[in-house]
Amino acid sequence: MARSMWRGAIQFGLVTIPVKLYLATEQGGIGFNLLHASCLNRIQMKVYCPYHDEVIPRSETVRGYEWSKGKYVVVTEEDIDSVPLKTMRAIEIEMFINASRDAEGTQFVKQAYYLEPDQIGAKAFYLLKSVLAEQGKSAICKIVLKDREQLAALNPFSKSMLLTTLHWPDEVRAMDELNLPEDQIDIKPSEKKMAEQLVASMTGEFNADDHADDYRQALMAVIERKVAGEKPEPAAARAEPTNITDLMAALEASVAAARSDRKAASAEDKAPTKVATKVATKVATKAKAKARAKAKDDEVEAPRERRRKTA
């Protein structure tokens, strides 16, 4: 498993249980890199100082806190280390709540972490877990992560426990701004019955594996097609590897073909050259689409496709 991102101890009453935290989730989106459009190289973000009008290395930066408009005080690592907080290396359990009933405030979650108990604390760890599980309780605690004291909920989960960091109450927005009906909405018994039937028919066991990120898969398919289009299989007919002069020769051939297309078009009926090329590309596309459709059912698609095109 990945490296633990925090180590400390669960504290409640006089009990101390040493644990490690591991990130329970990761971002699943498709990552893009920003490239310069003309050369396709990765761009770089430089740290720029407008006062000195120069790009500076990150090592020359410090943290500043804006205590008044435009006025900063520099906060160093030592300052942060000297903060007198008992949750510095601890998961301080404040209280226990009824997990299913009083959990409204624990809905605003930030990030989930797996807990791994140290050997010496294993017994106390699983004792706590089993009590929480049996009584349907959830522990509300505080922990310092990434320089900030965070509110968190501790819950039994599978073979371990899950620590979920929560938003502080002042970080949760009020619902007053929403346009919600004041009065109770009238619902006919027949309507309610229909809704209940629908819910019953769609009820099942939740299994995360059944749910796929469709957008991500579709985007990946587009990318894969594009990658495949940029990089055709090596031409099997050529015995020797081709080089840059062959590429130039191929370009020349392409120019010659375009030229003879133009000549043919102007000789036939003086039709505009654009029409001629359009027909040519259309034909090529059709043939290709056909070849692709055929190749779909075929294991050995590449050679077949090529034969068809060159025939």
């Binding site: 990089k231 055709p232 090596p234 031409a235 590897p241 081709t242 080089n243 840059i244």
Partner: peptide, 10 residues
């Protein structure tokens, strides 16, 4: 260039 002599930006 790749093995087939084609341009390959990757």
């Amino acid at each position: 260039l790749d093995e087939g002599g084609w341009l390959d930006t990757e």
